[in-house]
Design a protein around this nucleic acid. Structure first.
Lengths: 157, 157
DNA sequence: AGTGAAAGACATTTAAA
DNA sequence: TTTAAATGTCTTTCACT
């Protein structure tokens, strides 16, 4: 992960559709070099994929919430089932596995407040693993879509 | 937002680097049609950009947390300053503006637990707007990177 | 709104340093 | 690892439906 790799990762985070030619031009290297670097980063799992960022409201999702969930005392396998099931529900944008006051935090985005209530009552509350949950409405959200590498001890690492 | 648009949005969320030709082939339309649809979706703000998904650990970020922040009684302008400043700190992946027990929830990702503590004590706690905060370690995370449109009343909307 | 053909731009491979 | 050249594919425009 040298400076060239760091630049590639930065540029592709901010625009995944950059042509390889343009990427190479901005890096000051040959296109084939850029191509090989991108492939290596992908092979090493640094770059995990490319996605379009879509406006949630344009998808008809006008209500967002963070839901802190406490699970009951169950076996690990039940936690994993919960995570896999709930994490792939279409209403769930992100599922966080956390410690502290809660076990799971869900970021959900649905059509409106009514649908949010329906989600909480009909879908979440009926899961046998759920003991309690607490909901915070989300009124705004800022994503840092370009994340820089953080080094342990200076730029030499 | 007809079914063709919905398919485009789905396909580009799952792979932003799909060639326009391949996109058109999967949609069953001509490349020029696919191109115009994608441009219209971009113009209308449905597609907001394209990004590479990068492994946080590959960026040297091995510790993640959700930090619930309560702000003091300040003017709106100070809240906005806080949001803009903190939301663009490199440690912050996402900033949520919420209601309920807290005013702000931060998803932060840093090198290790030591750096997390330093972030909380040296950077967050020293902000004048911050009254209290509470930290939950994040041990796992599942993103739903392909979000479908949710319709109010059936597929006809 | 959708299409097909044409021109130019591009990705990708290869051989070599 | 990086490069330049070459091939085949792709994006994009435009006249037409």
């Amino acid at each position: 992960m040298d400076e060239l790799d760091a630049s590639i990762v930065r540029l592709l985070q901010s625009d995944a559709r950059l042509s390889n030619r343009e990427l190479a031009r901005r890096l000051g290297v040959a296109p084939s070099t850029a191509l090989e670097r991108v492939r290596a980063l992908t092979r090493r799992g640094v770059i995990r994929g490319y996605g379009a960022h879509v406006d949630l409201k344009a998808l008809g999702r006008h209500a967002e919430a963070l839901v802190s969930v406490q699970l009951g005392r169950h076996q690990r396998s039940m936690y994993e089932t919960f995570r896999e099931t709930v994490g792939s529900w279409p209403e769930v944008v992100t599922l966080f596995v956390v410690s502290g006051g809660s076990d799971i935090v869900l970021h959900v985005a649905v059509q409106d407040v009514e649908q949010l209530h329906a989600f909480l009552v009909d879908r979440l509350a009926t899961r046998p693993e759920v003991a309690r949950f607490q909901t915070s409405m989300v009124f705004g959200r800022d994503h840092n879509r370009v994340l820089e590498p953080l080094d342990g001890e200076g730029p030499g690492a």
